[in-house]
Simulated assay, not measured.
Amino acid sequence: MPLLTILDETASGSIINRLELEISQETLTVREMITRRVLGEVAAYNERQNGVFQGLVQPTESERALNGYKLRPTKRIDGEQQQYRALEAFQQNGFFVLVNDRQAESLDDTVWLGDGATVSFVKLTPLVGG
């Protein structure tokens, strides 16, 4: 199965996380891509339960920590809830998605993810006081 490389970047272009996602088809909607990514992150966290979740969006009952989000006490994350939070964050410009250096405009955009495709999730940081 082909692997899709996903990069998490800051607005300045710094890479803060890199992961690979197995895909079985060459095209997906942005919605399907976000969903697969988030459900994969949640499943990996729930399996290892190390207390720090490194994911696209912050779980509801967590606090920001260096390199992720810390949950107290350590508990399982609801994948469906995380999926909805991520889709909502995309629609509210909490992050944007670049597929092959082209910005995805909506959740229903269909993108090509064939051999050599790259996807970047650029997380936006709210301005303080502003």
Score class of each variant (00 low, 15 high):
P2D: 07
N46A: 10
A65D: 07
Q82N: 07
Q81R: 14
E105F: 06
Y84A: 11
E20I: 00
I15N: 02
R37L: 15
E61A: 13
V111P: 07
I6N: 08
T29V: 05
S24D: 12
D8Y: 15
D8C: 09
E9H: 05
R37P: 02
I77K: 10
Y84W: 09
V97Q: 02
P2S: 08
S14Q: 12
K75E: 15
G114F: 07
G114D: 06
S62D: 05
L21V: 15
A44S: 14
F95K: 01
M33G: 10
T60W: 09
S120V: 00
E47P: 04
L39W: 00
Q83K: 15
R72S: 11
K123G: 11
N46K: 05
G55S: 10
S24A: 07
E26M: 03
D109C: 10
G94D: 02
F96Y: 15
S24R: 08
L3P: 00
L66T: 10
F90I: 00
L71C: 00
R64K: 12
D115A: 08
L127F: 13
D109T: 03
L124H: 14
R31H: 14
E32L: 06
D115H: 09
T5V: 12
E22H: 14
L28R: 13
V111K: 03
L71M: 09
L107Q: 06
R102M: 05
K75M: 12
